[in-house]
Simulated scan of single mutants.
Amino acid sequence: MRIAFHTPLNLFDDGGVSGDRRMARQLVAALETLGHVVEPVRAARGYLPSADPACLDQHRADAARLSDQLLASYRSGAPRPDLWFTYHNYYRAPDLLGPAIAAALGIPYVTAEASDSERRAFDEWSAQTAIVRHSLTAADVHFHFTDRDRQGLEPWRQPGTALLELPPFITFEKEPPQREDHAGPPRLITIAMMREGTKQNSYLALARILARIPDAGWRLSIVGDGRRRGEIERAFACLPQEQIDWLGLIPRERALDELARHDIFVWPGVREAYGLVYLEAQAVGLPVVAFDSGGVSATVMAGETALLAPEGDEAAFAGNLVTLLQDQARRERMGAEARRFVLKERTSAGAATRLAEGLDFACRHRRDKLRAAGSAAS
Rank of each mutant, 00 (worst) to 15 (best):
P8V: 14
R330A: 04
E32Y: 11
Y91S: 01
L83F: 04
E332S: 11
R228V: 10
F236H: 02
H182G: 03
D263N: 04
H182Y: 08
A192Y: 02
I209Y: 14
S221Q: 08
D360K: 10
R157V: 06
S293C: 05
P108C: 03
A103M: 10
L325Y: 13
T146H: 04
S76A: 13
L204P: 08
G77M: 01
A192C: 02
G197H: 07
A64Y: 07
T129D: 00
W156N: 05
F265Q: 01
E154H: 11
A93W: 10
H134M: 13
L83W: 00
P8H: 14
S76V: 09
L279W: 08
R364F: 00
K369M: 07
R80D: 05
E124V: 01
R228Y: 14
Q26M: 12
A139W: 11
A43F: 09
L279V: 05
L239E: 01
A207R: 07
E253P: 14
E272G: 02
D20Y: 15
P167V: 00
A255Q: 11
L370W: 07
V37M: 02
E242W: 15
A351I: 11
T86E: 00
L239N: 02
V342M: 00
T347M: 02
L247H: 04
D181V: 15
R229T: 05
A302N: 08
V277L: 03
I222R: 01
R354N: 03
G19E: 03
S297W: 06
W246I: 06
P214N: 03
R45Q: 01
R330C: 04
V38H: 05
P214Y: 03
G275F: 13
R208D: 09
D62C: 04
P167K: 00
I101T: 12
W84I: 14
G152H: 01
A103Q: 15
R354L: 08
V266R: 00
E304C: 03
D181M: 10
S73P: 10
A349T: 13
S76Q: 14
T7K: 06
P268L: 02
R195T: 05
L324Q: 00
A112P: 12
C55L: 06
A352H: 06
H144M: 05
H144N: 07
